[in-house]
Design a protein around this nucleic acid. Structure first.
Length: 243
DNA sequence: TCAAATGTTTGATC
DNA sequence: GGATCAAACATTTG
């Protein structure tokens, strides 16, 4: 799944649907997100934690299918379906979620420019795309949005951090916020299997400028969109205007 | 049949 | 410690 915008979409929808319901005798008081982990908090402590990895789905009042791994039944007869075709995802009960604070870096939507710049300065030799996807460096960005952010900032995904100008750093920073927020407004990107908590597909794919658009013409400069491997993942970028 | 896929972890190597 | 890469997890899709 599901990068920050997709998990955040599900978080918001579940907040509206399941707060106040009771699950296995425990009242739900909050639905939170930390990095790409979704947390359902109970009144007397403890949480249910979900990670959807690549193909996980959480559908409120969905119908079970072959991909269904778990069904959570609420006291009022409604339910939450956890699907995951590839079985990489997980759900677990946590007594304490404090460790999640240190497990991940600052939230992408919360980080300040000064913090972002200071953290970059500690990793001068890292390539920018894998660094943006490093959850310990900054939390919430994955393969789709790192490509889109770097396209918007006109920065090549393999650029070393130490070669970035202050202006480029600011540009990347501003586009992290801008693109993630816009993607949330569109309920995320349904490239393949992702659907939101209502079982609907996200709309943001039509705004992708480079992700999975190899061979197409760049909408900004007319160059050709390329795909290369960086850190074992596909990186999509315009070979002409991303320097 | 082969390649690639929204994520993360682990181990090897320089 | 950093950086890079391959492999692993299990399955679907083109």
């Amino acid at each position: 799944m599901p990068e920050l915008p997709e998990v955040e979409t599900i978080r918001r929808q579940l907040t509206a649907k399941i707060i106040g319901k009771t699950l296995e005798g425990k009242k739900i008081v909050k639905v939170r997100r930390r990095a790409k982990v979704l947390l359902v908090d109970f009144a007397r402590g403890g949480s249910l934690a979900f990670h959807l990895k690549l193909t996980g789905q959480l559908i409120f009042n969905g119908q079970p299918s072959r991909a269904t791994r778990k069904v959570f039944n609420f006291d009022d007869g409604s339910r939450l379906i956890f699907n995951d075709a590839r079985k990489f995802g997980w759900v677990k009960k946590l007594k304490d979620t404090k460790f999640l604070e240190e497990k991940f870096g600052p939230e992408a939507l919360d980080i300040k420019l000064g913090t972002f710049t200071a953290r970059l300065a500690r990793r001068p030799n890292a390539k920018i795309k894998p660094l943006l996807m490093d959850q310990k460096f900054i939390a919430g960005i994955g393969n789709i949005y790192s490509d889109e952010i770097l396209f918007a900032a006109k920065v090549h995904p393999a650029r070393r951090v130490k070669t970035l100008s202050r202006r480029e750093v600011k540009n990347i920073f501003q586009n992290i916020k801008k693109i993630l927020k816009k993607a949330i407004e569109h309920h995320g990107s349904s490239v393949k299997s992702y659907v939101d908590a209502c079982g609907r597909r996200g709309d943001f794919v039509k705004y992708h400028k480079v992700y999975q658009r190899e061979g197409e013409k760049c909408g900004r400069c007319g160059g050709v969109i390329k795909r290369i491997k960086i850190g074992g993942r596909s990186a999509h970028f315009c070979g002409q205007c991303q320097i």
